[in-house]
Amino acid sequence: MGTSDQLKLVVLRRIGCGNPAKKERYTFDFVVNGQSLFAVTGASNFDLSGCLSVPQREPELALRLNGELAQRLTSAVPCGGSHRVALYICPECGDLACGAITALVSRSEGVVHWSDFAYENGADRETKLSKVGPFAFDWTSYMTEIDQACVG
C-alpha cells in the first residue's frame, strides 16, 4: 500500500460564557498530517465544535452520542460505498440547520477516504471547501484512533 494520511483526534475546547449564553464543550478536532481540520475548514468562524465528545469531560454526551457518530465514520460506511458525515457541528444542539462542516466518507478495501468537504446548513446551497482534502487513511489505524478517542 502507498503512503496514507495520518489521523489524530485532539481535544478541542469551546470556552463557555454567559452573554450570549454559550456552553463550554470538550470535543475532538480531527488533525490530519499534523494540521487541524477545525482551523483549515474555518469551523471556528461558524462557532462549531467537533462531532465527538471527550468521554473524560462530557461523559453523558459521549455515552449517548459517540457510539452512533463514530459508527457513521467507521462501520456504517459500506465497503465500496459512501455517505456524508458532519465532522463539526453546532455545539448547542448539533442540528445541521445551525450549520456543519461535512465530508464525504467512503471506503475501499483497507482504506477510508474523506473528500468533498463543505459547509452546509440545510437551507442554503452548500459551500464547497475545495482547499481541504481529499484524504486516504489506513483502515486499521483509522479505526484504532477513533475507538481510542471514543472510549477514553
Rank of each mutant, 00 (worst) to 15 (best):
S4P: 02
D5C: 05
L7G: 10
L9A: 12
V10K: 04
L12R: 09
R13G: 08
N19R: 01
P20V: 15
A21C: 06
A21G: 03
K22V: 14
K22L: 07
R25K: 12
T27H: 00
F28I: 03
F28L: 02
V32G: 08
G34I: 06
Q35L: 03
S36M: 03
T41I: 02
F46T: 02
S49C: 06
V54K: 05
P55R: 09
R57T: 11
E58N: 07
E58I: 01
P59V: 10
E60T: 11
L61R: 10
A62K: 04
A62D: 12
N66W: 03
E68A: 13
A70C: 14
R72Q: 15
R72C: 14
A76L: 11
G80V: 10
G81V: 00
L87G: 03
P91E: 07
A97T: 13
C98M: 05
A100R: 04
T102N: 00
R107H: 12
R107E: 15
V111E: 15
D116R: 05
A123T: 14
D124L: 01
R125Q: 13
R125W: 02
E126P: 14
E126S: 14
E126A: 15
T127G: 10
T127D: 14
L129H: 07
S130H: 08
G133N: 00
P134C: 11
W139F: 05
T140D: 08
T140L: 05
S141T: 01
S141D: 13
M143F: 05
T144S: 11
Q148H: 12
Q148R: 12
